[in-house]
């Protein structure tokens, strides 16, 4: 039996971990929204600035879940945490930026091009954590609990003991990100089923 033992919800206005808002966007800030969170939470990973928005969102979500649940990083061998991510618009946001880099007479930007694949965020999280486990990035029309449940089912049979799952939809200022960690730990978890996943995804934390 699988349980969701930690989750992070991030949209245009707030960032919440395990249902509690930890950061709210300051619209007057000179910093981008993701950079605001990075600074507030005192992360130190200079590579963050080089990442595209998809990777920045994945970095923040994964790190915040790890902080709230120390077992995520500590209790599994380096290849037993799978990553199962999906979204609906692939890397389109970065694709458009790369396209603009070579409009007119300018040269295409290699550092933008390497982010024009949705699964790069999986690589960034794997590099940071030294995770050698299974990876999947799928494109689906909408957030679909059934996809994660089915895929968790088949990665478990392949030897993965836990999984970081994610829905990372970022396009032209729209942010709809949900990361959740799944393991077989009953004590701290919410049972993994379609209903619970949908309700965690749709839950709007109260803004005080």
């Amino acid at each position: 039996m699988n349980f969701v033992t930690g989750y992070c919800r991030l949209n245009e206005d707030f960032c919440a971990v395990n249902g509690e808002v930890i950061s709210r966007r300051d619209v007057d800030s000179e910093d981008s929204w993701f950079k605001q969170i990075y600074k507030e939470q005192e992360f130190v990973y200079p590579k963050f600035y080089k990442m595209d928005l998809l990777s920045q969102a994945g970095f923040l979500g994964a790190e915040l879940i790890k902080r709230a649940n120390l077992r995520v990083a500590g209790s599994y061998p380096d290849d037993e945490i799978a990553m199962i991510f999906a979204n609906s618009s692939s890397s389109t946001d970065t694709d458009m930026r790369f396209l603009r880099s070579y409009e007119g007479n300018s040269s295409p930007s290699p550092s933008l091009f390497v982010y024009t694949l949705p699964n790069i965020v999986l690589g960034e999280i794997a590099i940071l954590n030294k995770w050698y486990g299974e990876n999947m990035f799928a494109i689906l029309p909408n957030f679909e609990p059934g996809f994660y449940i089915n895929y968790l089912n088949i990665t478990k049979s392949g030897g993965s003991k836990a999984a970081l799952c994610g829905w990372l939809e970022i396009l032209e200022g729209k942010v709809d990100v949900f990361l959740f960690f799944v393991e077989e730990n009953e004590e701290t978890g919410t049972p993994l089923n379609a209903e619970n996943l949908a309700s965690l995804f749709n839950h709007k934390p109260s803004i005080n």
């Binding site: 999986l122 690589g123 590099i127 486990g133």
Partner: peptide, 11 residues
Amino acid sequence: GASANDANHIS
């Protein structure tokens, strides 16, 4: 079969 990440470099 299985997949595995290099956990080394994105490109």
